[in-house]
Every structure is written in structure tokens, then in C-alpha cells.
Design a protein around this nucleic acid. Structure first.
Lengths: 353, 353
DNA sequence: GAATTTACGAAAAACAATTACAGAAGAACT
DNA sequence: AGTTCTTCTGTAATTGTTTTTCGTAAATTC
């Protein structure tokens, strides 16, 4: 079925195309009489404005590109909901690009995003080469990076305070009295991975615990690497008595390994994870974790990109959002008094149980 | 920064616009000599083809609209990954529309999708009014419905076999010997909700168990309704000894309630859920569930829509994909021999523990 | 050497909207 | 009555491609 055009509407209504456009966009006063003629012509032809033609003419697509590493990760999917709901209010649509953190997919998508003339770009993924990011920057399209930012970019960034977050998670384990605290990090080439490692190290240092390279495992932020890195940790001579795991997927993988091999949490190994989930409190045992404000992160990113689109001259903005330590039982806190370890803080030596 | 146009590339390279277009799209033979001139002009001007202009001219957007009720639901986010990976292979992008199953958001998005002239539409959400669906159908844009299809549509549909799935889940509980088996359904206005209820009823009927209206609760497919409906069930006089829950979010909500109120699974209440999740085997107790082939569902949907775009004349296709019963422990199957109930099937009366 | 094929240019016609500019008609003012 | 001001509406240019037509010149084939 051929779609009706504005021109056809105009001829049927007996007016000019300019007039039709003006009634549609309310850009100029049009008499009620003419308006009605136009509306009934629109009705009769079942006319739907062609937004791609409009985009070409007015040079804006009303589309925001969203470059994300894994939409199936609950953290990201909540972020996306935040973005979506905020953008929907301003009638922007989102073009979803799932990259698997692959440089090739990233570059490929960036290319189509430039071609499709998106009005802005929200990035929460990076394979970190950046040729296409640079050419994106040259085009002047506003970008905001979310939680991960390649060093060479000077765009807006909105982050959770990763260092502080992992510091508090590690600190919590230290206060429990654990001394051989391991960490499963994300790729240290990614800022998130690096920062969470930094927070861990800083906590150990502040509490006078010497760190051991053997207790630092670099994972890949996915379930599988959580599983294998956990396995490595528990099969080596220098076993940890607690572990801090840098994201939800790896925590899941680690849990799978620990359950499978009958290692009891927290008795044989205490764990604190990163990212809260809907299921974190019904697993066995419920996971103590660093919660990121995922939804708010998305909302903020959306607002920032919209602000940038309206006014491109604003100074670079770097926002840090705070994390929250959610205490459950995988760290060793007990059921009756889950906050006991917080209340007797530094005085404890052997934890709060 | 003003972007370079094809025309500018042409003049810089000293060739015609037709030629530049031909080298870019490889639509006609062009000598290497000329090609090189064009390429270096492109390089020099940092030219990026304007796809919206192209879209206008060739009347295709290379965008598939994706109407989905909740991207944060792990089932859907896996489906989306399947769709994304398949579409990426053919250089189609996806425009993400999260609807919350709200009629208003659905209509609004449908309108922008029509306006943006998407080449196809994958729908896994429905508030079920359908005025805009109908006008979408009139435009001739290919649509495939995924797991939920409004009755009045005659588009392609790809479904999991919901009736069979919930039948086997219910049957499993029956074989355990439970007689007061409740169900928490989704909205029965949605086909998924209705069909899963049908499967449940059919199983009860086949095994000669009289059904009770009190044991049928209609939820909303979200965590909260799982919680409240579970609560209703356990607080009424006619308590169930087992429950079948029609999706993952409601199962999660139900679990939360049961843990909170100290009801032991499966001793006091056995549960079988719908939708498998990464975390289903690490919760306490691990959830027995009906697994849908989420990723494959997405891949299939993507392939179908691409086939439709290429050839619009194909007959309507309705595909059913099979579910799988994943036996863990929430149903009462024990750890040592998780499949015992399957092996002594109908002979058991009081379950397999 | 004639006929055909190939490579390319120039120019213009789509594609479907927006918008600057101009013109006409009527109202309001001198 | 003539002038100015609104208020409405039409004309035509513009956005960046692709594609068609027509034409020319060189290369290839017979």
C-alpha cells in the first residue's frame, strides 16, 4: 500500500503544503475552517507524516544511540529502562546496540549511528580503541559515557563511585576479621574493572593488610569467568577466606562453583558482590553486595544527553553517584542481627557472628 | 561542524555524484583509478554517508521496531539478545520500545514507528486495543508477534507452546501427589496468561482433580503481584500444598513472600515456576521450572521478519517452540536423585521424596 | 574497420517534508 | 479614501541521496 504524502493531503484539502505543515506542527496560525479541511483530509487518506523526510529537512533524527555491552545483564537492563522512560517523555527513541564489548561490533555500530545521524549517544561499553569514537567526537554529536569511559575521550561521564564502592565492600570483609581477602576483578583495561580493584587495594592498605597477587584474579565480567576464577582461587594453595567479586554476573558464576563443589558460604568462604539484583535476597545465602543506583544512572544519563542536545556549549560534566552496601548473609553477618558488624565496627576482630 | 556531502566529495574527487554513489554502493563498475580518487576525497573530507537521505530515496530504513513489555525482565532481555545478534548480521538496527504493557505507550510508540518508516516490527507486548496495530497492518509493514498475539491480528506468530508447558509443570506437581495445586496466572487478557491457565486446567482435568476457583489467582506478570497473590493464597482458608507460577518475575515475588514468612519450600508448599533464569539454581531451594528457549525465540523472530521484508507474499506462519521441564528441588524432588519422580511416574502417590 | 561494449559525466527527477518570502484580503487607523 | 497592520495562505527553494536518461569517448570484439 502506497502511503499518502503531505502533498496529497494538501490537494485533497484544497490548500498548500505549507498550510498542512503548519497545522500539523502548529507553527503558524491557521483558521479553524482550513484546519478542519486539513484534518478530514488526513483522516480520509490515513496520512502518517514521514519522519525520515522531516529528519532530512530539519537535520535532527530524534534518535539517541545506545551502545551497551550486554543488554541481558540485569544491571544494564535496568539502566536501559531508566534511559528509556526518561527519553520517552521527550519523544526521543532509542537505537539499541549490543556490543559484547567487542571492538568490531562497537566500530560497526558507531558507523551506522553516525550514518543514521543520531542526535546523541549514550555509551556504556568500550572495547577501547576509539578511532570511531574520535570521529564521532569530530562530528559534534553529543555523547555521554556511562560508568565506563575511555581515557582519551573528553565527553560527559556519569559514573558510580567505583573506588568508594569496592572500598566499602572490602572494608566490610576486613571488619569481619578476614585476612586473606581475594578479589575477582573485571578487565583492568576497563575503567570499572580498574577502579574496583583500586578500591580493594586501598582498603587493604588502609587496614594494614598486605596484598597478594595470587588473590587477585582478573575476570571478564561474565558468568563463566566468575566460575573459573572462583575455581582457580579455591584450588590454589593460597586459598582465601573471603572474596570480593566485582559484578553481578561473576558473583553468580562464583556462587555456582561454590555450590557445586560444596563449599559453604560464608563459613568456608565469605563473599561480597557488586551490583544488587532482584534475586540477591532469595539465593542461598542471600548476597551482601554493593548496590549501584542503576535506574537513576539511566535517568541521569538521559537527562544529560538531552541537555547537551539543546545546548552544546556547556562545560564537560563528570558526575559520581554513590553506591550502597546492602548487608545480607554471604559476608558472615547473621540473621538475627544483620547489622551487628556495623555496630561494633572496628572493635571486632573475628567478625560479628 | 558541518558534515561533508556526497556532492562535495564528488567535486573534490573531480567526478560526478553518480560515480561516487556507484563506488560507495558498488552498483556499477568503476575503474580502480577513479575509485581511489573517490576514496581519498572521502578520507580527506571525513565523509559519512547520510543514511536518512538514502532512506528517503530508497524507501527503506534498515530499522526494525521492537515493541517489548519489559526489557528488564530477564526472559525478554535474552530474547532481545537473540534478535539483536541475528539482525546485526544483516545490518539492521533495532529501535527499542519498552511499553510496560501500557496501551498508551504502545500506541504512542507504534505511531513513531510508522512515522520512522521501520522496515519491520517485532512485537512482544500487547495492551490489546489494537487501533494502531490495525493501521500498521494497513501500511503493509511486516510484523511478527512473539509469544503474545492479539486475536484480531493475522500476522506471523512465534510462540512457545504455553499450554503444553504449563501442562507438564502442573502434571509434575500432580505426580508428586499434591492435590491442592494452585496457580498464579498472568493477565488472562494476554494469550500467554490465558494459555498457561488452560494447560494447568487441562492437566488437573486429565488427572481427575477438581479445580477450585480459590486456587486460581490472576497476577500481573510482575514481582509485586507474585508476592501479593502468593500471600493471598497462603492466608486464605483453602491453602494449597503446591503452586504453579506462570512466569519468572512472579515466581521471584512469591519466593520473597515465602521466605519472609518462613514458609518452607517444598515441605509446606511445593513450587514449579515458568521461565528459567541464571539464578534459578542457586536460590534456596533451586527452582523447578518450565524453560522457554528465549534466545532461539529471538533468533527465529529476527529471521522471520527478515524473510518477510524480502518476500512479502509468503503465507502466514505460526511457529510453536517447545518448552522443557527443568527439575530442581522446589517441587520436592530430592538432591540425591533429582529425577526419581520422573522414573516412577504414575506409580507414586505421595511424591518422590 | 565496423559494431558492440564499457566507463564515466552532466543534469534532472524523484523521495517527503519544512520554511523563507511574498502576496492578498480584510480590519483599523489617520 | 488612502495607508498601514494583521492574519492567513501560496510559491518555491532546500535537505542529501539514488537513479534514470542521454551523451561521449575509449576499449573490445568480430
Amino acid at each position: 500500500m502506497k502511503r499518502a504524502t503531505l502533498k496529497e493531503v494538501a490537494t485533497l484539502a484544497g490548500v498548500s503544503t505549507a498550510t498542512v505543515s503548519n497545522v500539523l506542527n502548529e507553527t503558524k496560525n491557521v483558521s479553524d475552517e482550513v484546519k478542519n479541511k486539513v484534518f478530514s483530509a488526513i483522516q480520509e487518506l490515513n496520512y502518517q507524516p514521514n519522519i525520515v523526510a522531516k529528519s532530512l529537512r530539519v537535520q535532527e533524527s530524534r534518535i539517541i544511540g545506545l551502545l551497551i555491552s550486554d543488554i541481558a545483564n540485569p544491571f544494564f537492563s535496568i539502566v536501559v529502562r531508566g534511559i528509556e522512560e526518561e527519553l520517552a517523555k521527550s519523544d526521543y527513541s532509542i537505537l539499541l546496540c549490543n556490543t559484547d564489548s567487542s571492538v568490531e561490533k562497537e566500530d560497526k555500530y558507531l558507523k551506522v549511528l553516525i550514518g543514521k545521524r543520531v542526535d546523541g549517544l549514550i555509551v556504556s561499553s568500550t572495547g577501547n580503541t576509539g578511532d570511531y569514537f574520535r570521529s564521532m567526537e569530530k562530528t559534534g554529536v553529543p555523547m555521554v559515557f556511562l560508568n565506563r569511559c575511555p581515557d582519551f575521550m573528553v565527553s560527559d561521564v556519569i559514573m558510580t563511585n567505583n573506588i568508594k564502592g569496592s572500598y566499602s565492600g572490602t572494608e566490610h570483609l576486613i571488619r569481619h576479621g578476614f585476612e586473606k581477602i581475594a578479589i575477582i576483578t573485571g578487565p583492568i583495561s576497563i575503567s570499572t574493572g580498574k577502579d574496583r580493584l583500586t578500591g580493594y587495594k586501598r582498603a587493604l592498605e588502609d587496614y594494614g593488610i598486605t596484598e597478594s597477587d595470587e588473590l587477585v584474579k582478573e575476570g571478564n565480567f561474565d558468568i563463566e569467568s566468575g566460575y573459573t576464577k572462583m575455581k582457580e582461587l579455591m584450588e590454589q594453595d593460597n586459598k582465601p577466606d573471603a572474596v570480593f567479586i566485582s559484578n553481578n554476573s561473576m558473583t553468580l558464576g562464583a556462587y555456582k562453583y561454590l555450590k557445586e563443589s560444596g563449599i559453604s558460604i560464608p563459613d568456608q568462604l565469605a563473599v561480597v558482590g557488586y551490583d544488587d539484583s532482584d534475586w540477591a535476597d532469595i539465593v542461598d545465602p542471600p548476597i551482601t553486595t554493593i548496590k549501584q543506583p542503576a535506574y537513576e544512572l539511566g535517568v541521569h544519563a538521559a537527562r544529560l544527553i538531552l541537555a547537551r542536545i539543546i545546548n552544546k556549549q556547556v562545560k564537560r560534566e563528570i558526575t559520581y553517584m554513590d553506591t550502597e552496601l546492602i548487608i545480607r548473609h554471604s559476608c558472615g553477618c547473621n540473621k538475627e542481627n544483620p547489622y551487628s558488624c556495623e555496630s561494633n565496627k572496628l572493635e571486632t576482630t573475628s567478625g560479628c557472628i
